[in-house]
Design a protein around this nucleic acid. Structure first.
Ligand SMILES: [Mn+2]
Ligand SMILES: [Mn+2]
Ligand SMILES: [Mn+2]
Ligand SMILES: [Mn+2]
Lengths: 218, 218
DNA sequence: AAAATAAATTAGATTAACCTAATTAATCAA
DNA sequence: TTGATTAATTAGGTTAATCTAATTTATTTT
């Protein structure tokens, strides 16, 4: 079908398209894929030939509908495998990403759907990211950054924007757990430090950087 | 670490070494890997450079100890994933091989061992093939072909030598099931047709070809 | 042992995915 | 609006893994 490399390009384009604008720059792809720019140009030409992307010289790329389908399929695989690793094999949420990067490329729609069923049709992965359904529909999250909250506001911790193992470990250690309630007790004017009340009345103080990486839902 | 291609060569060499003699011929590899002979020669040279095999021009290949370790590791992965697919996801034994061919290349010893635990440390895969342990030790089966049995002999059905989906389907349809007892009621002199008593007294007649693909243990 | 056949290797190409160095195109600042 | 800076492409290579055609080596058969 498609090579792992192509699939990784598609996933990267998809994520950059979501995060930033509609077209994705060669340099942005080179950075996230950890290759040099000419390799990207080269690959984009091949992928345009396969109608996975529309590529305009020096203008950037966009996914075609076909390309988007493949990208979302891989994200679905990735997130379902992460659930499997955490729920069934006992991995921690900071350990599963690299394994899922491999597992996401196993080609079988049927396997994906059977895995989905086995896991009880989860709505989100261990990091709170939504899992696309079998038709490639990805529910749009309405979670918002904790850094947009004011004193007294509260919500439920439902996701992160920083997926690094170090950040996830910090959260574990500090007492954050997905699904728990969080209330803003105070925000320091000087440096935007947040004082939070976690589940069980536990109070913690976190930096703006942390508040800016936590997603809360009402 | 190693490419999928290298891993498939190692697995193929291992299996041919087990089945036939000590050294494996270029042509045999070309056949099972479905590539042409010069590709094999080429690859063997590269693999010899990596000390995965010992290769003597025009003489054949053998695995090094390092190569054997890798090969057995992949077979371990393959068989554990097959158990997962059948026991956990509800696949039938004739459906899992191709998926396992992909999954076996996921590289993580830790994942393999966690999967092993999750599955309850199975001794054999859905086709009765033994699963190597974490140290690469593969228990030598003492099962024997049904075709070596005489009238009146009996045993337990514990494996197959033909892993094709068509054969496995035939077994399902005819009433064979791994672990069941089988007794030889008669053998026709003329064409070596076997009359067997299966579990629940059910009698079936099978060809020599079938009797020669079933493994029984006492 | 020579001839015939089969198996394996060498020679020379191809393709995907990458690279560096050089060049061109686009964007920003004076 | 020119000039500088940054981004992107072209040109020319490399490596792994494959191929076909030609040649060499090994095994049989006479
Ligand atoms: Mn992930
Ligand atoms: Mn995730
Ligand atoms: Mn198999
Ligand atoms: Mn099997």
């Amino acid at each position: 079908m498609h090579s792992f490399t192509e699939e990784n390009y598609l996933k990267a384009i998809y994520k950059l398209q979501e995060a930033n604008g509609l077209v994705v720059a060669t340099s942005a792809l080179a950075q996230v894929l950890e290759v040099h720019a000419p390799s990207v140009t080269d690959m984009l030409k091949r992928m345009a030939g396969k109608k996975l992307v529309t590529y305009q010289k020096s203008k950037g790329v966009k996914l075609t509908e076909k390309g988007r389908q493949v990208a979302v399929g891989i994200i679905r695989n990735h997130r379902l495998w992460e659930v499997f690793l955490v729920d069934k094999l006992g991995y921690k949420w900071d350990e599963v990403h690299d394994l899922a990067e491999q597992l996401e490329h196993i080609h079988s729609e049927d396997l994906t759907n059977k895995l989905d069923m086995f896991l009880g049709f989860p709505k989100a992965d261990p990091h709170g990211d939504p899992i696309p359904d079998a038709n490639g529909v990805l529910p749009k999250s309405k979670a918002v950054l904790l850094s947009t909250f004011a004193e007294g506001d509260q919500g439920t911790f439902t996701g992160v924007t920083d997926h690094s193992a170090t950040f996830l470990n910090y959260l574990d250690k500090t007492g954050f757990s997905l699904g728990d309630p969080i209330k803003v007790k105070g925000i320091e004017e000087y440096d935007q430090t947040y004082t939070l009340q976690l589940k069980g009345k536990k109070e913690v103080v976190v930096s703006f950087k942390v508040a800016n990486s936590l997603l809360l839902s009402y």
